[in-house]
Design a protein around this nucleic acid. Structure first.
Lengths: 224, 224
DNA sequence: CTCGTCTTGTCAATTTATTGACAAGCTTGG
DNA sequence: CCAAGCTTGTCAATAAATTGACAAGACGAG
């Protein structure tokens, strides 16, 4: 899952980026409103966290522009305590939730998790498909009831696929959502992760949990 | 769909085989009960048509042996008018339907069609999946409501896949059910037919009606 | 019966995915 | 701070499917 973080105070940027990374999210960073708009326009995002008080293009206008472009991903706004009234304006321009600074990082992470989950159309943090159960809040996987441990990236790949059931997810899409900015296009890391995932999810190779649609991408087996 | 025809009178064999072929079925021929048992044991069948009066191993015993082996495909028996009572015994041994000789070939075809359809679990002759509609009684295909014409083999491939929705059908299975006895194992005819089918069903390549499961086979797209 | 057309089957080139082995990078506990 | 172990990423070999072009065969109209 990729999150755009628009925040001008460098210290907060770093702190939040680290926390989000640890939680397993890819973060694109922008330090002013114009930059933020650029990322929102050019790259696929799963959500944005926007500080209202921004140089160049203020947070409220940034939200408006993003929504004008038709992007539907959730937006979480951050406001200074002294300007808490702005939250109302932010929500009316299309933001989905807000947080008043200062706040606990855990609080932010909880809201981010919830927004992402709901925007994928799930009411609860647990998604089940056949023998696989994914808990997006604890980031744990159970296979036939038993704990299964996956590495961070293995989890990300599986989560993205499970959050988009029925959908054929192209390798490009997966890469763009799991990795930050740049990243080498002609590498086969993804194939390799899919392989490792398959081996852990289905060592015997019987149920084929992740299907390959040649030339189109991957999909969670809809018949599971 | 492959049918085993066990009938000792050569003239009738030929007549029926031709009729069945024209109807689009692959026919394995046996001229006595032992031969019939051999085919039923060694090859995958979709149904059998058995004349009760047979040399070596009579039709009734053949039915019993087939069922003992656990085969569930439908069996249609043929009895001479003078021995019509045998039909009762045949049915009690596991046959599914009977026909008294002489009969109209059309009558036979109609029963064969119906038996095959029902054994695939369909109540009506029309199977629909997304934009594709298959009528197993007229052997016609409609795509988005419009008539689509397929060659005989293209139809067979599609029918077999549609009769087995959700199932991943291996190339071997497809080949065995569509072609009579022998047939070259390492040919790629099947791939070629699948390609032609795909082109007719979905010229733009958008909905991917026939999926490839690498190393496992083909399947009708379950998300259609 | 024969020609022309449509269908079926073959083949080789290409594309794409899978796989194992290994190297580089990180993380962490001592 | 360092080493051991795990995770991530790269690479090359192989396997499998796709594709277009073409040849052989079947079929039907005249």
């Amino acid at each position: 899952m990729k999150i755009l973080l628009v925040e001008d105070e460098a210290a907060i940027q770093e702190q939040l980026k680290n926390a989000l990374n640890k939680e397993g999210y890819a973060v694109d960073q922008a330090f002013d409103g114009e930059d933020g708009l650029y990322y929102a326009t050019e790259y696929p995002l799963d959500m944005a966290i926007i500080d209202i008080g921004l140089p160049k293009l203020n947070g409220l206008d940034l939200i408006s522009k993003i929504r004008e472009q038709g992007h539907a991903f959730p937006i979480l706004i951050l406001t200074a305590r002294s300007r808490w009234q702005e939250k109302v304006e932010g929500l009316s321009r299309g933001a989905d939730d807000y947080l008043v600074k200062p706040f606990q990082v855990e609080e932010l992470l909880a809201r981010v998790n919830a927004l992402l989950r709901r925007s994928s159309g799930f009411a609860t943090p647990i998604i089940t498909r056949g023998p696989i159960e994914l808990n997006s809040s604890t980031k744990q996987i159970k296979l036939n009831g038993g704990e299964l441990d996956l590495t961070a990236y293995e989890y990300k790949v599986l989560e993205y696929l499970m959050m988009n059931p029925e959908k054929v997810v192209s390798k490009t899409e997966l890469t763009e959502h799991l990795y930050e900015q740049d990243h080498d296009k002609d590498s086969n890391v993804l194939e390799v992760f899919v392989r490792r995932l398959r081996k852990k999810l289905d060592p015997e190779g019987l149920l084929n949990p992740i299907e390959t649609l040649r030339g189109r991408g991957y999909r969670i087996n809809p018949t599971l």
